Simulated scan of single mutants.
Amino acid sequence: MSEHLDTRTLGELVLDRAPWPEADPRLAHVEGCAVCGKELAALRRVARAVRTATAADLPIAPPERVWHAIVHRLADPRA
Protein backbone atom coordinates (compact mmCIF):
# COMPACT_ATOMS: atom_id res chain seq x y z
CA MET A 1 0.00 0.00 0.00
CA SER A 2 1.58 3.26 -1.11
CA GLU A 3 -1.10 5.79 -0.22
CA HIS A 4 -1.52 7.16 3.25
CA LEU A 5 -4.59 6.20 5.26
CA ASP A 6 -7.27 8.84 5.58
CA THR A 7 -8.18 10.38 8.92
CA ARG A 8 -11.44 8.43 9.12
CA THR A 9 -9.64 5.11 8.80
CA LEU A 10 -7.03 6.14 11.37
CA GLY A 11 -9.83 7.32 13.67
CA GLU A 12 -11.50 3.92 13.43
CA LEU A 13 -8.23 2.35 14.50
CA VAL A 14 -7.96 4.71 17.46
CA LEU A 15 -11.55 4.04 18.53
CA ASP A 16 -11.13 0.29 18.07
CA ARG A 17 -13.86 0.29 15.43
CA ALA A 18 -11.79 -1.21 12.65
CA PRO A 19 -12.95 -4.80 12.16
CA TRP A 20 -9.79 -5.82 10.39
CA PRO A 21 -7.75 -8.97 10.88
CA GLU A 22 -4.17 -8.40 11.96
CA ALA A 23 -2.97 -9.43 8.49
CA ASP A 24 -4.79 -6.47 6.90
CA PRO A 25 -2.36 -4.45 4.76
CA ARG A 26 -3.67 -1.19 6.25
CA LEU A 27 -2.31 -2.14 9.66
CA ALA A 28 1.01 -3.10 8.15
CA HIS A 29 1.03 0.26 6.37
CA VAL A 30 0.61 2.18 9.63
CA GLU A 31 3.43 0.22 11.22
CA GLY A 32 5.76 0.97 8.30
CA CYS A 33 4.71 4.52 7.43
CA ALA A 34 6.12 7.37 9.52
CA VAL A 35 3.44 9.82 8.34
CA CYS A 36 0.49 7.55 9.17
CA GLY A 37 2.15 6.36 12.36
CA LYS A 38 2.62 9.95 13.52
CA GLU A 39 -1.00 10.82 12.69
CA LEU A 40 -2.25 7.71 14.49
CA ALA A 41 -0.19 8.59 17.57
CA ALA A 42 -1.61 12.14 17.58
CA LEU A 43 -5.17 10.85 17.28
CA ARG A 44 -4.52 8.42 20.13
CA ARG A 45 -3.33 11.30 22.34
CA VAL A 46 -6.50 13.26 21.55
CA ALA A 47 -8.72 10.25 22.27
CA ARG A 48 -6.90 9.61 25.56
CA ALA A 49 -7.31 13.26 26.59
CA VAL A 50 -11.03 13.19 25.82
CA ARG A 51 -11.57 9.91 27.63
CA THR A 52 -9.81 11.13 30.77
CA ALA A 53 -11.17 14.69 30.84
CA THR A 54 -12.99 15.78 33.96
CA ALA A 55 -15.23 18.76 34.70
CA ALA A 56 -12.18 20.62 36.01
CA ASP A 57 -10.58 20.32 32.56
CA LEU A 58 -13.46 22.09 30.82
CA PRO A 59 -13.23 25.80 30.12
CA ILE A 60 -15.25 28.14 32.24
CA ALA A 61 -17.45 30.87 30.85
CA PRO A 62 -16.08 34.39 31.09
CA PRO A 63 -17.67 36.77 33.58
CA GLU A 64 -20.89 38.46 32.50
CA ARG A 65 -19.07 41.82 32.30
CA VAL A 66 -17.00 40.47 29.41
CA TRP A 67 -20.13 39.71 27.38
CA HIS A 68 -21.52 43.17 28.15
CA ALA A 69 -18.28 44.78 26.95
CA ILE A 70 -18.38 42.75 23.72
CA VAL A 71 -21.99 43.75 23.05
CA HIS A 72 -21.18 47.39 23.81
CA ARG A 73 -18.18 47.38 21.45
CA LEU A 74 -20.15 45.73 18.66
CA ALA A 75 -22.96 48.26 19.04
CA ASP A 76 -20.59 51.26 19.00
CA PRO A 77 -19.76 52.15 15.38
CA ARG A 78 -16.67 54.08 16.53
CA ALA A 79 -15.11 51.04 18.20
Rank of each mutant, 00 (worst) to 15 (best):
R45G: 13
R48G: 10
W20A: 02
E39T: 12
R73C: 09
H72N: 06
L74Q: 12
P59L: 12
A75F: 07
W67S: 03
A23S: 14
R48N: 07
L74S: 05
D6S: 10
R45Y: 11
D24A: 06
E39L: 03
I60R: 15
V46P: 08
L15Q: 12
W20R: 06
A75S: 14
E12N: 13
G11M: 09
R8T: 15
D76E: 02
P25F: 09
P21M: 03
A23E: 15
A56E: 14
D16T: 09
G32F: 01
A75G: 11
P77Q: 09
P25G: 04
E12H: 11
H29F: 02
A47N: 04
E31M: 11
R45A: 14
A42P: 08
C33L: 03
R26M: 01
E22D: 15
H68G: 06
A55E: 14
L10P: 00
S2H: 15
E64K: 13
H4V: 06
P21A: 07
E64Q: 13
R51Q: 03
E3Q: 10
A18T: 00
R26A: 02
P21D: 08
A28V: 15
E64Y: 08
L58Y: 01
E64F: 06
L5F: 01
A41T: 00
I60D: 09
E3L: 15
P19M: 15
E12A: 07
T52K: 12
A53D: 04
H4W: 08
E64C: 00
R51N: 05
V35G: 10
V71I: 09
A69M: 07
T54F: 00
G32W: 04
A28Y: 10
V66A: 03
G32E: 12
I70K: 06
A18Q: 05
E31C: 10
C33Q: 04
E39F: 04
E64N: 14
R8L: 14
G11V: 07
L15N: 12
D6N: 15
A69H: 04
G11P: 06
P62E: 07
W20V: 06
H29S: 04
A79L: 12
V71M: 09
H29L: 05
D16S: 12
A47M: 03
G37Q: 07
M1Q: 12
H68T: 05
A47F: 01
L5K: 00
R26E: 01
R51W: 09
L74I: 15
A28W: 13
L58K: 08
